[in-house]
Amino acid sequence: MSHLIIIFLALLLMLSYNSVISQEQTGGDTLPCNEVINELSPCLSYLNKQYSSPSSFCCQGANYVWKQYGKKKKQRRGVCECLESVLPLIGQIDGSVISAIPQQCGLKIKIPPINGDFNCSMIH
């Protein structure tokens, strides 16, 4: 549990440093990275493989992020870049676990296996 608290505090510090993805990256639509991270933070226990499926709060957050930022390609890339920027703070995450969240939550979207080697410009 203390490990999750440290991760959460690290995320908060990062959010104070980088709270908004630049408008150029999202085509004029500002993407608040802090909101994305806040909505998806309940997914940490699933991403760290503490649980075999995401919690209902994780699914609600994933659904919210998709509805708010999933319609335009540049917004989807912005979400990817936001997630990619916090991965080093979280540690090693199996990218396939990230890509399984929509299926596990019953969302009709596809997320590539995002990890430290993933290039967000590949998002369509």
Rank of each mutant, 00 (worst) to 15 (best):
M1L: 06
M1F: 04
L4M: 09
I5H: 00
I6G: 01
I7W: 05
I7Y: 10
F8G: 02
L9G: 01
A10M: 10
L11W: 11
L11Q: 11
L13H: 09
L13S: 07
L13R: 05
M14K: 15
L15M: 13
L15V: 14
L15Y: 12
L15G: 14
S16N: 09
S16A: 07
S19H: 06
V20L: 12
I21D: 01
G28T: 14
P32V: 07
N34L: 04
E35W: 01
E35R: 03
I37S: 00
N38Q: 01
E39L: 02
L40T: 00
L40I: 04
L40V: 01
P42E: 11
N48C: 03
K49R: 07
Q50Y: 00
Y51W: 01
S53C: 02
S56G: 00
S56H: 01
S56E: 05
C58K: 02
C58N: 06
Y64M: 10
V65D: 08
V65S: 02
W66N: 14
W66D: 14
W66E: 12
W66Q: 15
Q68P: 04
Y69L: 09
Y69H: 10
Y69A: 02
G70W: 11
K71Y: 12
K73V: 15
K74R: 15
K74M: 15
Q75R: 15
R77I: 15
R77P: 04
G78E: 05
V79D: 00
C80F: 02
E81C: 02
E81G: 00
E81M: 06
C82H: 03
L83Y: 04
L83K: 02
E84Q: 11
E84N: 11
S85H: 15
S85E: 13
L87T: 07
L87Y: 10
P88M: 06
G91I: 07
G91L: 08
Q92H: 15
Q92F: 14
I93L: 08
S96T: 14
S96E: 13
V97P: 00
V97L: 15
I98A: 01
S99I: 08
A100N: 14
I101N: 04
P102V: 06
C105F: 09
G106A: 08
L107K: 07
K108V: 05
I109Y: 07
K110A: 06
K110D: 07
I111N: 01
P112Y: 06
D117C: 08
F118A: 10
F118V: 14
C120R: 09
M122H: 13
M122A: 13
I123P: 07
